[in-house]
């Protein structure tokens, strides 16, 4: 693969339909994993399923056979509580056996409830919020000053933008012209104990990023074509970091979980799992 700062736009084999199917599979894994382990954070997993499918099957230059390939794109999941679905993405992408997903949160499993390094394909452990973007800035700066070809992509939540550390990094990235950095905000409008609007309203979020000298695009975070086209257009402006504000729905894909704060915490029952599988059109 040739070193370039442009994102690949050729969907190739992975048509929009196929990418959307991958997203449904990831959702189904997450539902089963969270049910099996009596874990939580399912709503947060489902809202970013389409983004992850697009990244892992279309955008990111990665090689599951060589997870530590030097020139690989770096992807940091800063909302580390979405662990179930990122593990599902990594397994389905071939970083480790899909069968291992059954061990999620089990005693002795490396698949802990918040994303943890040591799992093949994971670049950074997170769980406490507001850590991913500063680390991503460091990676991007290292690449920029070292003339290295890889790109750095950070996915954060909306609630996470309450953290001051993120705003330190949001100041930092344009200062150092990190146009090899992409931040994606999974803007599902619900944080852990209330709606974003009611807790610390982020609006107007795009204007805030623009004022901080980022190049901003807003997309429907469940529209695969839009996601693929937008990620392919990064960097949106030379010399500026890019941010994609992805408008999403918490719990997307399972009607009774959609836009419900409760599904930040709840574990689905066996009946709910079956209902979810029917809606997702996937049987794992």
């Amino acid at each position: 693969m040739s070193p370039t700062h442009r994102y690949g736009s050729d969907l190739g084999m992975n048509t929009v339909e196929r990418l959307s199917a991958f997203a449904q599979t990831l959702r189904a894994h997450a539902v089963r994993m969270v049910h099996r382990s009596r874990a939580s954070h399912l709503g947060s997993c489902l809202s970013m399923a389409d983004i992850l499918a697009c990244l892992y099957w279309n955008t990111l230059r990665i090689d599951p056979e060589h997870p530590n390939w030097q020139d690989r794109d770096r992807f940091i999941l800063s909302k580390g509580h979405g662990a179930a679905i990122i593990y599902a993405a990594l397994a389905e992408r071939g970083f480790f056996p899909v069968g291992e997903l059954k061990t999620y949160c089990e005693s002795g499993s490396r698949l802990t409830g918040h994303i943890t390094s040591g799992v093949p394909g994971v670049e950074l452990s997170s769980g406490s919020l507001g850590h991913g973007l500063p680390v991503g800035c460091g990676m991007a700066l290292g690449a920029k000053r070292g003339n290295l070809p890889f790109r750095t992509v950070v996915l954060c939540s909306d609630g996470e933008l309450d953290e001051g550390s993120n705003w330190e990094a949001i100041l930092f990235a344009p200062q150092h012209e990190l146009d090899n950095l992409l931040l994606i905000v999974d803007f599902n409008k619900i944080q852990s104990f209330g709606r974003v609007k009611e807790v610390l309203d982020l609006d107007p979020l795009a204007d805030k990023f623009r004022a901080f000298r980022w190049a901003v695009r807003e997309v429907d975070g469940h529209n695969m074509q839009q996601l693929a086209d937008t990620f392919a257009a990064v960097p949106f402006e030379q010399g500026r970091p890019s941010v994609v504000i992805a408008h999403t729905v918490k719990g997307k894909g399972v009607s009774f979980m959609e836009d419900q704060l409760a599904w930040h915490y709840k574990t689905p029952s066996a009946e709910q799992v079956e209902a979810a599988m029917r809606e997702l059109g996937v049987d794992l």
Binding site: R74, H131, M139, L141, F172
Partner: peptide, 16 residues
């Protein structure tokens, strides 16, 4: 901005 400073340091260390 010490939080970002330390995170950036970690990111740089992660790339060698």
């Amino acid at each position: 901005a010490e939080q970002n400073m330390t995170g950036v340091a970690a990111g740089l260390a992660l790339v060698g």
